[in-house]
Amino acid sequence: MNAPPGPLATRRLILASVALIGLGNLPFGSRPAHAANDKYPEDAFKQKSQADAIKSLYGRSAEPSDKIKLDAPEIAENGAVVPISVTTTLDKVTSISFLVAENPNALAASYRIPEGTIPTVANRLKMAKTTNVLVIVEADGKLFSATKEVKVTVGGCGG
């Protein structure tokens, strides 16, 4: 791992050490990689369930927060294109992730939010069927979540 010098590097080293220690406890040999480095979190995207994806991405679980506003339609006629956005008043946000519970792989998108970037993201996701959309906000090293059910008329995973 080629971390640049400075405080960030120290943080990365610490996180990397923590990740190594924690590795033995995790299934699938996954690591809580997201906060620790800038690599594409391939393992997290391969997990089927929400819980496993969150574990792989962050290495811990989130608590619900009313400081997250998740905007998604009540009913999505076309599951292939569901506009979903999130905004939060939480401080020190470093990442925002979107998960769709009943998709073949729960994790849909994960956004890294450097300092100076507003913790607001809008995107469009595919949804296989009516299910909950979960958003995870990583703020000040803690994980917070918000969820909303979206009714899908025509599923977006085809086949």
Binding site: D38, Y40, F45, N105, A108, A109, Y111, R112, N123
Partner: peptide
């Protein structure tokens, strides 16, 4: 300033 990691569930 912004990095998106995407899976195939993005439209």
């Amino acid at each position: 300033v912004f990095v998106a990691d995407w899976g195939p569930a993005v439209s």
